[in-house]
Design a protein around this nucleic acid. Structure first.
Lengths: 159, 159
DNA sequence: GAATTCTTGACTAATTTAGTCGGCAATGTA
DNA sequence: TACATTGCCGACTAAATTAGTCAAGAATTC
């Protein structure tokens, strides 16, 4: 399982969607602002998330994205593999040709590790994450604080 | 914990050293040939391994590298962090400034994951790896088969 | 002194990451 | 119907990282 900022961004964005579930479609612009991720980059990520039906979209004014399924039914592992097509710690990506078309010395080690990481992350759902205190705290801060820098006097008008 | 081919190469090379322990110093050229890793790249990796005293070196003819400690006392995690200085899944590398100088939504998730991977890999030693059947099989192949491509008719003359 | 082998550092090609930019497509609202 | 809003798509790009190459030198053995 490859772990890059790409996957991290995707999970963060999906968690944002989960947190704001029930408020109708959420625009990427909102997510970009709250989570500090570039809008155009989000567009790329959501193209892949949509392909896997992890999100569904509504165009036009008032449009945006919503979760494709319930938050309890979306695992972190799924989100990562959706954006990060490459899912393996092994050089060969599961094939056994890491060296001269044969398994390299440490092939099984990386394979086992991949399995474990995948297992771990596939048992954590977006819903699990939402319930964590640390996540709730950060979410609260993002709600209140508004766009951190652009804060200042507008603070009162939040929501 | 960052997992890249760099770390994989390092672990593979160290495991090769462990397997050929007791045959005196092993040259990087040998490792390069057996494991299919570029010699100059190995030089870079071993410079770091030496700094951490995971290997010790002998110069001159008949020289080479040997393990810096017993194979039971060297964990996979140590080898990876030696070559891969960056050890964290979090964007901030353990600091809490992933977003606007504060924790990002998923900070703790990545932190936990890092911990787990590190735990897992720090409990596996080079000695453990050597004892695995799959490793022994590949090692045997490398011993017999010689440089794979250059095999052909020389096959009989192995060892 | 010549051959080996490690040691060091500067350089480089290819790939990946993390974006930017621009235009088009659908849809709701005035 | 016009237009503003939002997603959709593809081409392009800057920066970083990976995976090396290359060359010179230092220690050691024969």
């Amino acid at each position: 399982m490859r772990l890059t900022t790409k996957g991290r961004y995707a999970v963060t964005a999906m968690l944002d969607l989960a947190i704001h579930h029930g408020e109708g479609p959420i625009t990427l612009a909102d997510i970009a602002q709250r989570q500090g991720i570039s809008l155009s980059y989000l567009e790329q990520l959501f193209a892949r998330l949509r392909k896997r039906q992890l999100v569904s979209s509504v165009r036009g004014p008032g449009g945006g994205y919503t979760l494709g399924r319930n938050a309890e039914e979306i695992s972190v592992a799924e989100v990562i593999t959706a954006v990060d097509e490459n899912v393996d710690t092994t050089r060969c990506g599961g094939a056994h040709n890491c060296q001269d078309n044969q398994k390299c010395l440490t092939h099984e080690l990386w394979h086992d590790l991949s399995d474990r990481i995948h297992d771990y992350l596939s048992r954590i759902t977006l819903d699990d994450l939402m319930k964590r205190r640390d996540v709730q705290e950060v979410a609260q801060r993002q709600e209140d604080g508004a766009p951190s820098v652009a804060a200042g006097s507008l603070k009162a008008q939040a929501r």
